[in-house]
Design a binder for these strands. Structure first.
Length: 872
RNA sequence: GGGCGCAUAGCUCAGUUGGCUAGAGCACUUCGUUUACACCGAAGGGGUCCAGGGUUCGAGUCCUUGUGCGCCCACCA
């Protein structure tokens, strides 16, 4: 790379070629890393993005965080593997494509037929997949493309089929009739977490089934009452006690009902009439009561949302029409006791917003409670809970462990069949009453495959091991090849909203297939919100397109904006201004490097430790501390904190102090080597955050090896703490002088003379006086004295720092100086008072740690000394 | 109804096991074009740490009650 380094960093010139170099090098693939056999693993899967749309800024955040983890561990010598892929997102994708063909061709999927429709889906999928992969590269993801997977590709299909058959054979998968959440529009069941509740006003009717019926009930859905088979009351309810266990009959709008009166403690005596009409076919809890009490189930509503046959005049009517008819009839017969408006949560389909009908239906389920002999006679639920409880799987932040455990504890069987076309076909065939479950279509004629497909989470639940070659790499209970090398993975990084949908399923499926956890740690990030704290959405037009931002500010700036200020489990606000702010930092780093590079001839960094100046030792000590702190925080996944530390070091210590000092010090050769040493170190430290610019600069340094595979810096053993303190004194003096000039409004060009009295540090200040003169203090003459008697100045500014006194000759304004002094005196008095109070408190002196008390005493002495100096 | 989180400078947020004279970035004020950088440099102003009560020598930090906001789960007959 022979490009010149411009005054400002232009990411567009560098980023693509850098990514190409990385990709060509093969280092994204752990097999090419030339590591010792015993190198530790660091494996992570990319949560496969849905192929429904191009990536948004939330995905960018995922990639920034995960790439940081991966690059950090690669530099630390781990065998790092990050597996890319995409998710077919069955229902979501089918919906997008359905909408698309409706808009473009005015056709429904039924017009096209299953085969044609699926062709359209695959067409769409190839387009979006290409865009997604391009965006991933743009983000700088150092991900192993050679292992790319798709939840619906051939390898995953085999894995899914094998899993289904294995689970069926062990009795974990079963077919059952259960109340499911049915969307009449999508013609599909929905999982609990695919339901959206919409608050609405609803009419809440209290009525009797007929004139002679002794008990009144309440409902918002009178039409379902056609299928009532019982009335439930609270066993403690005095009003109804006498009816319990009786069987009563009623004529409800022409329909004969046989109603058993049952007792159930879950019935709230104070709600409605305290009596509940039980409709086993169209309500979840009613169905449970029906199972408990052995009640008949009468189906009233069909899959289209119409009243079924054999309900007289209501048959064939839409649900809402039937409801109106029943209300009118009840009104005519004067059976309605009360009609009130209540707030009701309507269950709707998260895709299309249609009201959900709870319906009994034949579906495939994964049992979470069936004991599995092979797994110590424990159920999947029990094993998954165990993994969380004994911290085999650790959640970051920890509070989500509780949420995971709560959810797992209340988990019900998982309905895995979906009545849609796009997805994994269920490996089950029927012939009349016969049923065959197997990985391949059975021999013989007339077998018909189950028309349903599998819940998309069934395939993504296997992601940690299906991407590593399961089932081929699992023979006779033994893991082989990639599966053996990389499973369980070390880290799962994903959003907290996926704990229930995805994380819990991955844990159960990995336990079933391999009898081991899928990952050791789960890092949960929050959502990326707009600058007002609102969710980004297309309709609100408050979204930020990552590709636009990359174009404008570069990937590194975007990554910093996504990484700094981002803490686990908390949402992050994002704005263009923020990204622009980090662009400024990137440019600063660029210019720091430019300055350093311009001073060196041979890029050598082997400085002579004997020739180090005070400022050299100071910056090396700071670097040492930064390395330690940054490494510690990164290994604890506090990347935001370590980024802040790095920025502090880079901008405040290195640029503002060390580089400035460097301009005014001798022994250039050795100092330039120190500069190179520092630069190489910070490039490594920054690399996981901002890979492009660091690699770009690195390649200007004549290094043979790429930065991506260099090694994480180690802290030096030497300790320059006392030198650091000495340099701090110089810094304080310089800042005091600048401050005094500013307070006194001394013209910038005006040169002053300084006399500094410092009995303890005379020698130090003499040695460093060139810095005091040079670093933006406007001092042209300086005199360091160790004894007050040497002072002869008349008009001067007086600054005190513990036992140091500074006299600035010239530019003195008596009034301003008085104001300044009064302020300082007041402040000092306040401090002294507060410490004295503390020290007068016997409890403090006796109970606080001795070290702290001594510290306070020393502080007090210093303040007193300063005060005395000023008052003199 | 059950649970979780948040509340600190004008804004966005840090603040590890209690030791704080409460920090950073942005914004703001003043000054400065000095040969790495104006996407810059120097100096500065700005806070009852949501409110009440408690524990403690000491509370932004721990306990408790309340208020406001956000989220999750359940229920809504």
């Amino acid at each position: 790379m022979d490009q010149k380094m411009d005054k400002t960093y232009n990411p567009v010139l560098w980023e693509d070629q850098i990514y190409e170099k990385w990709e060509k090098s093969g280092y994204f693939n752990p097999d090419n890393l030339n590591l010792p056999e015993n190198a530790p693993n660091y494996t992570m899967i990319l949560p496969p993005p849905n192929i429904t749309a191009k990536l948004h800024i939330g995905h960018s955040s995922v990639m920034a965080i995960e790439d940081l983890f991966i690059r950090y561990h690669r530099l630390c010598g781990y065998r790092t593997l990050w597996i890319p892929g995409t998710d077919h997102a069955a229902i979501a994708t089918q919906n997008v494509v359905e909408k698309k063909i409706l808009a473009e061709e005015k056709k429904t999927r039924h017009d096209l037929g299953r085969e044609k429709f699926l062709e359209k889906v695959w067409e769409f999928l190839h387009e979006t997949q290409a865009v997604i992969l391009k965006q991933t590269r743009k983000m700088g993801a150092s991900i192993d493309w050679s292992r790319t997977a798709f939840t619906l590709d051939e390898d995953r299909k085999r894995a899914v089929n094998k899993m289904f058959v294995d689970m069926y054979k062990e009795g974990i998968i079963y077919r059952g009739e259960r109340i499911v959440n049915w969307c009449p529009r999508c013609q599909s069941t929905l999982a609990d977490d695919e339901i959206e509740y919409q608050e609405q006003k609803a009419s809440f009717y209290t009525f009797k089934y007929d004139q002679n019926f002794p008990i009144a009930i309440s409902t918002t859905r009178p039409e379902t009452k056609l299928g009532d088979t019982a009335i439930a009351v609270n066993p403690k309810d005095e009003r109804y006690k006498k009816y319990i266990d009786q069987e009563l009959s009623a004529n409800f709008c022409g329909q004969e009902l046989n109603l058993k009166i049952i007792a159930d403690i879950n019935v709230d005596m104070n709600f409605g009439t305290g009596a509940l009409g039980v409709t086993p076919a169209h309500s979840m809890i009613d169905s449970q009561m029906a199972i408990k009490n052995n009640l008949k189930t009468i189906k009233v509503i069909d899959e289209e949302g119409n009243i079924k046959e054999n309900f007289g005049k209501f048959s064939g009517q839409k649900v809402l029409v039937a409801r109106k008819m029943i209300i009118e009839e009840l009104q005519e017969k004067n059976l309605i006791i009360k009609e009130e408006e209540i707030n009701n949560n309507l269950s709707t389909c998260y895709r299309c917003g249609t009201a959900i009908e709870p319906l009994p239906s034949k579906q495939w389920f994964v049992s979470v409670d069936t004991k599995i002999p092979r797994l110590g006679n424990k159920s999947l639920k029990e094993k998954a809970i165990e993994a969380g409880e004994n911290k085999k799987i650790e959640f970051i932040p920890d509070r989500f462990t509780k949420r995971y455990l709560d959810w797992m504890t209340n988990l019900h069987d998982w309905c895995i069949s979906r009545q849609i076309w796009f997805g994994h076909e269920i490996p089950v065939w029927y012939r009349g009453e016969e049923i065959y479950v197997g990985e391949e279509k059975p021999q013989g004629k007339d077998w018909k495959q189950d028309p349903d497909t599998l819940d998309t989470w069934f395939s993504s639940g296997m992601w940690t091991f299906s991407t590593l070659g399961w089932p081929d790499n699992f023979q006779n209970g033994k893991k082989l090849n990639d599966l053996q090398k990389f499973h369980p993975t070390q880290m799962l990084e994903t959003g907290y909203e996926l704990i229930t949908l995805w994380i819990s399923r991955m844990i159960m499926m990995s336990i079933f297939a391999l009898d081991e956890i899928p990952f050791e740690k789960v890092y949960l990030h929050g959502m990326v919100l707009d600058k007002n704290g609102k969710k980004m959405s297309k309709s609100k037009r408050n979204g930020i397109d990552p590709l636009d931002m990359i174009e404008k500010f570069g990937t590194d700036s975007l990554r910093l904006a996504l990484l700094l200020g981002n803490t686990p489990g908390n949402d992050l606000r994002m704005s263009e201004e923020k990204i622009a702010g980090y662009r400024n930092f990137i440019n600063k780093l660029w210019n720091i490097s430019r300055f350093i590079i311009s001073k060196t001839n041979d890029f050598s960094d082997d400085f002579d430790p004997q020739k180090l100046s005070l400022s050299d030792k100071w910056i090396l000590n700071k670097l040492n501390k930064t390395i330690k702190k940054t490494s510690l925080d990164l290994s604890a996944y506090k990347f935001s904190l370590s980024g802040e530390e790095l920025r502090e070091f880079t901008w405040n210590d290195l640029a503002d102090w060390y580089l400035e000092a460097n301009k005014f010090e001798k022994d250039e050769d050795n100092k330039n080597k120190v500069l190179l040493f520092i630069l190489k170190n910070i490039l490594k430290l920054w690399h996981p955050f901002i890979p492009f610019i660091t690699e770009t600069i690195w390649q200007q340094l004549g290094e043979k090896q790429m930065l991506i595979v260099s090694s994480w810096p180690q802290a030096q053993e030497v300790n320059f703490d006392s030198e650091e303190q000495s340099f701090n004194i110089i810094q304080e003096i310089i800042m005091s002088i600048r401050n005094a000039r500013s307070e006194h409004r001394i013209e910038p060009g005006k040169k002053l003379q300084a006399i500094i009295l410092s009995p303890r540090n005379k020698e130090l200040l003499e040695q460093q006086s060139h810095l005091i003169k040079s670093l933006k203090t406007g001092i042209n003459q300086i005199k360091i004295i160790g004894d007050k008697s040497e002072i002869s100045a008349k008009k001067n500014i007086f600054i005190t720092l513990a036992d140091i006194e500074i006299y600035l000759i010239g530019g003195f304004d008596e009034e301003k100086e008085k104001i300044r002094r009064d302020k300082e005196i007041a402040n000092l008095k306040k401090m002294i008072d507060s410490i004295e109070n503390k020290l007068n408190n016997q409890n403090f002196v006796n109970k606080a740690p001795a070290e702290l008390v001594a510290q306070e005493k020393e502080k007090l002495n210093n303040y007193k000394l300063e005060l005395r100096k000023i008052l003199n």
